[in-house]
Amino acid sequence: MGGSHTGPGAQPAGTPFGGGDFEIRVRGRLGDAFRSAFGELTIVLRPAETVLVGAGLDQAALYGILDRIQGLGLELLEVRRLPGPREAR
């Protein structure tokens, strides 16, 4: 049997293995109670949305944040990996 190896240690393309910076957008402006649930993130309030920015997040941390967003009933608008220093050039 040939083909590419996809086992437990395989990483899909673009998945943050060692960590990355991410911008996560949710609908609405989060109040203090919701913002406290994301204390490890930088929070930017915009008129119609809240932007959560996380630096150096690995895959487990990113999925944990997404689980919190879902558990709190927030509407996820976008998850975007921010370019690192090498990618920005």
Rank of each mutant, 00 (worst) to 15 (best):
M1T: 15
M1P: 12
G2R: 12
G2C: 03
G3M: 04
G3V: 01
S4G: 06
S4M: 14
G7H: 01
P8E: 13
G9N: 15
G9I: 14
A10P: 04
A10Y: 09
Q11G: 14
P12C: 00
P12L: 04
P12E: 10
T15C: 06
P16T: 09
F17L: 15
F17P: 10
G18C: 15
G19V: 01
G20T: 06
G20Q: 01
F22A: 04
F22K: 01
F22D: 07
E23W: 11
E23Y: 04
R25E: 13
R25G: 02
R25H: 07
V26F: 02
V26G: 11
V26L: 02
R27Y: 07
G28R: 00
R29N: 04
R29E: 14
R29G: 06
G31S: 07
D32I: 15
D32E: 15
A33C: 12
R35F: 13
R35L: 15
S36K: 15
S36R: 13
A37P: 14
F38S: 12
G39W: 09
E40P: 10
L41H: 00
L41S: 09
L41F: 06
T42P: 10
T42Q: 10
T42Y: 05
T42C: 03
I43K: 02
I43S: 08
V44R: 05
V44P: 11
L45N: 13
L45K: 00
R46I: 11
P47W: 05
P47K: 02
A48C: 06
A48Q: 12
A48F: 09
A48N: 14
E49Q: 12
T50V: 05
V51N: 03
V51C: 12
A55Y: 15
A55Q: 15
A55V: 10
L57E: 09
L57Y: 02
Q59W: 15
Q59I: 08
Q59H: 08
Q59A: 13
A60S: 10
L62E: 05
G64I: 10
I65L: 01
L66W: 02
L66D: 05
L66C: 07
L66N: 00
D67S: 14
D67C: 02
R68N: 06
I69A: 00
I69D: 02
I69M: 00
Q70A: 09
G71N: 03
G73D: 01
L74H: 01
L74W: 03
L76A: 00
L76S: 04
L77I: 03
L77T: 13
E78A: 08
E78P: 09
V79H: 01
R80S: 07
R80A: 05
L82Q: 13
P83L: 13
P83N: 12
G84A: 12
G84E: 07
P85D: 12
P85A: 12
R86W: 07
R86K: 07
R86H: 14
R86C: 05
E87D: 12
A88N: 11
A88T: 14
A88M: 14
A88W: 11
